[in-house]
Write a protein that binds this DNA or RNA. Structure first.
Lengths: 339, 339
DNA sequence: CTGAAAGCGCTAACAA
DNA sequence: TTGTTAGCGCTTTCAG
């Protein structure tokens, strides 16, 4: 039934005995304003279906300067937070009848630049940049290319940005941890993981400090170990810490889920009593975390909200370089009997 | 420095005092075979950089009938297994200098069809279909459109497919569970989760049965509860099971990570002794799972290998409808002291 | 209500 | 070593 070679509007035009432009209009919906008779439209549509016609969006894009492609730069897919972002982006993009193009760039400056350039070559209609390591340069590239863009998670000086309220989240988590501690052990809390040069980590450290201040404590620099976002480095950093101070601190603020996994790798090797005596919290959410017997308060970033607001900027053609804060939620541990 | 409006090869041609086709050749690499002097090329490249020229890949694609877009249909991003698949696909696609377009379709028949059609409209060069609910129809659509394609995780009758060796994996996991059980409790193992209508689940059930047979047991139908892949349904199914049999079985084979999370939700509410007495295993891997105090053998599917082999079929233009099996690995629990 | 013609930016023969 | 000429398949005036 279906034709073997790709059909074009010309083929259909011939078959229907009309002109190509009529077919084009009939098939892309503009027939209404072109006042083409419902009859011809029906006939054309029927033939199109019969021969299995599909538009060539490349051609349409070339002509109309809109591709229907929305790009996203993402550090990685295989991470709970970022994959949620990707999922939300996919969903939102779909409702706009467009196609999501997600490129993962491992927080690598060169890969990011290359990816943005690539997406520009493909004439994406807009770009969302998540957790990039070098926002300002990337923003500049987008602006030069006249490409609507918005930053998520890691803000950019010169473009609209949507970011979790990291400071507030860190404050809440720190409070929760301090509440679990004995009063006299307050000074003994530590901050583990993340990259102090990045906006997110920086603000979380600030929130951490502020919360301590509320408890009349000044955080020493040694209490903050920003060992990166990696799993293994965090495990090793914690091991080293444990050795040098001959034991765990009374509380542990772990920055990000990857670091949490690393920390757990080390912690599971310790005697249970030692770990039980330490309050542990994580800035990021994983359902498994809250299924551990040890109670773990966790901060969940609202991926859906972040993406929704970011898209709002794009929809409204907003290029104002202002930052929107999204409040993350503190998830308190449930009581676990088994496991 | 940079021009404000989008530059074309014509603009550059004018600026360089050469023809557009020379510019085209100079910029896309074909200048070598067209024997254009290195000098002119250099001059053109320089000008191009100066004015901030970028190719319009839409135009190139229209002309050359290759878009450099590779599509993937994926059930979801926010799932450990599928996001790994997405990550591997991204990586592999990048090395081919192409752009990955991943569309998530929630295992929904209509969304899948729509997504495939959409990708065809965008003239993707090839398509990888992962865990689709309706492979045969989708394969048919691709074939009609002359679109090279390959199935992953869920195979298709009429196209190359790369799939985990589910039966073997299930066998290994079942053995591991039985080994942990008291000898007399062997008959009391249960299979929980998945969709029996899907290839993967079906084969896992087969492997489960075969392993039991090795222990001279015939699995009763009541021992198999394929309650879907959902988290909540699994939790509820397990709760119901617990009620009706007044306790946990002696062993639990949990099919897929989402089901595992659901099961945990219920299990964490039980008294520890009861759960401790039950051997639990999961067909899917999550690092947190192996960090639970309760030892959980897990089966890890080789996402990297699945994608690599799938790409191999595409690279080799292989359309032979044959199935490649990838052996998953059994990850035995480590000894956990704390948490 | 419909058709003709131009052109989006690029590539690929074929000339020169 | 380079330029000329046709399109790729579609949208979009402008005429009928």
């Amino acid at each position: 039934m279906e034709a073997n070679q790709k059909q074009t509007i010309y083929d259909i035009a011939k078959a229907a005995g009309v002109s190509a432009s009529t077919v084009g209009a009939a098939l892309n919906g503009s027939w209404k304003s072109r006042r083409i008779s419902k009859n011809t439209v029906n006939r054309i549509v029927e033939i199109a279906e019969e021969v299995g016609y599909t538009v060539n969006l490349q051609a349409r894009a070339l002509r109309s300067a809109k591709t229907g492609l929305f790009g996203m730069i993402l550090p990685q897919h295989d991470n709970r937070f970022f994959s949620s972002i990707g999922q939300c982006f996919s969903n939102e993009t779909r409702t706009r009848q467009a196609l999501p193009v997600i490129v993962s760039t491992r927080r690598d400056r060169d890969q990011e630049v290359q990816a943005v350039r690539g997406l520009i070559d493909y004439s994406v209609d807009a770009l969302m940049l998540v957790g990039t390591s070098n926002p300002d340069e990337l923003g500049e590239i987008c602006r030069e290319a006249n490409l609507p863009h918005v930053f998520v998670d890691q803000p950019c000086e010169g473009a609209p940005s949507v970011v979790s309220d990291n400071k507030e989240g860190a404050r809440k988590l720190t409070y929760a941890l301090l509440d679990q501690c004995e009063k006299n052990a307050v000074r003994d809390i530590m901050f583990l993981g993340g990259n102090a040069a990045l906006h997110a980590t920086d603000l979380r450290i600030q929130g951490f400090r502020e919360a301590l201040l509320q408890h009349d404590q000044i955080a020493m620099d040694e209490q903050i170990v920003a060992c990166g976002y990696g799993r293994a480095p965090t495990r090793d950093a914690l091991a080293k810490l444990y050795q040098s101070r001959k034991g765990l601190p009374s509380a542990l603020f772990i920055n990000s889920i990857g670091c949490f996994e690393g920390a757990l790798e080390f912690l599971t090797g310790l005697p249970a009593e030692e770990v039980d005596a330490c309050s542990i919290g994580c800035f990021d959410y994983d359902p498994f975390g809250s299924l551990l017997r040890h109670p773990i308060p966790m901060v969940r970033q609202r991926a859906d909200e972040l993406v929704r607001r970011a898209y709002q900027h794009l929809d409204e053609n907003d290029t104002e370089p202002r930052m929107t804060l999204i409040e993350p939620e503190l998830i308190l541990p449930r009581v676990i009997n088994a496991l």
